[in-house]
Computed example of a mutant assay.
Amino acid sequence: MNKIKFLVVAFFFISFASFAQTNEQATKIGYANVEEILSKMPERASMQKELEVYGQKLQEQFASKETEYNTKLQAYQKGASTMDKVVREDKERELMNLEQSIQKFQYDAQMSIREKEQSLIQPVLVKIENAIKDVAKENGYLYILSEQAILEGPESGSINNLVFKKLGVDPNKQPAAAQQAQPQQQQPAAAKPATTTTPAKKKKK
């Protein structure tokens, strides 16, 4: 899914809470790859499917608006030369308003898909965060860092497997969605209609 990495980074931008230890205890630091953990979560399949269905509905609405515009544009182009000045200018205003409506729908749809994606992923990220905190407490880690921020470190520092165990997730089992080729997510806001060009008004004599 698009923007997943961005959402993960945004959600986990702040460091995980540190866990109190006495000064006599050695500092124990671990790291986790939240993006990898998320990719193995069973919720991922249903989350992706719901987002695709949501995007398809917006795409259908966009297509309907585009069809309406193109139909009226073709009618205008066909009859503009025989239209009365008042009628012609009214048709031009109508086309301009439709074009603006399409542009606004494109922007709103893109924002809506982004918000929908965030609302779907947020509960899963919270679940992962809580599991990481539990693993840190149970295993005496003072800090848990993001693996993406580690330039070099021992493999033993990774707590991914401990987190998978805490979540009851088998990391060797691919989620249903990952077993299939992922279709491109449709976003109505990707581009303007090819024919969305407001007709120029004729010069007054």
Rank of each mutant, 00 (worst) to 15 (best):
M1V: 03
M1H: 08
N2S: 07
K3A: 09
I4V: 12
V9R: 15
A10F: 02
F12G: 07
F13V: 03
I14R: 15
I14T: 12
S15W: 01
F16V: 01
F16Q: 06
A17R: 12
Q21W: 01
Q25G: 03
Q25M: 04
A26V: 06
I29H: 04
Y31I: 05
N33L: 04
E35W: 02
E36A: 14
E36Y: 08
I37W: 01
M41R: 10
M41K: 04
S46E: 09
K49R: 13
G55D: 09
G55S: 15
G55P: 03
K57L: 06
K57Q: 14
L58Y: 03
E60C: 00
S64N: 13
K65I: 00
T71M: 03
A75I: 06
Y76W: 05
Q77W: 00
G79C: 00
G79T: 12
A80M: 10
S81H: 08
T82G: 09
M83C: 05
V87Q: 13
K91M: 09
E92N: 13
R93V: 06
L98T: 02
E99H: 12
E99Q: 15
S101L: 08
I102D: 02
Q106T: 05
A109P: 11
S112G: 10
I113E: 15
R114W: 07
E115K: 15
K116P: 13
Q118E: 14
L120S: 04
I121C: 03
V124W: 03
I128G: 01
N130M: 10
A131L: 09
K133Y: 04
A136K: 14
E138K: 15
L142Y: 08
Y143P: 03
Y143M: 11
S146E: 07
E147C: 02
Q148N: 13
E155W: 00
G157M: 12
S158W: 00
S158Q: 06
N161Q: 14
V163Y: 05
V163T: 10
K165S: 14
L167A: 09
G168Q: 06
K173E: 07
Q174N: 09
Q174E: 09
A176F: 01
P183W: 01
Q186C: 01
Q187H: 05
Q187F: 00
A189T: 10
A189D: 10
K192R: 14
T195G: 13
T195V: 08
T197V: 13
A200G: 11
A200Y: 02
A200V: 05
K201F: 00
K202G: 07
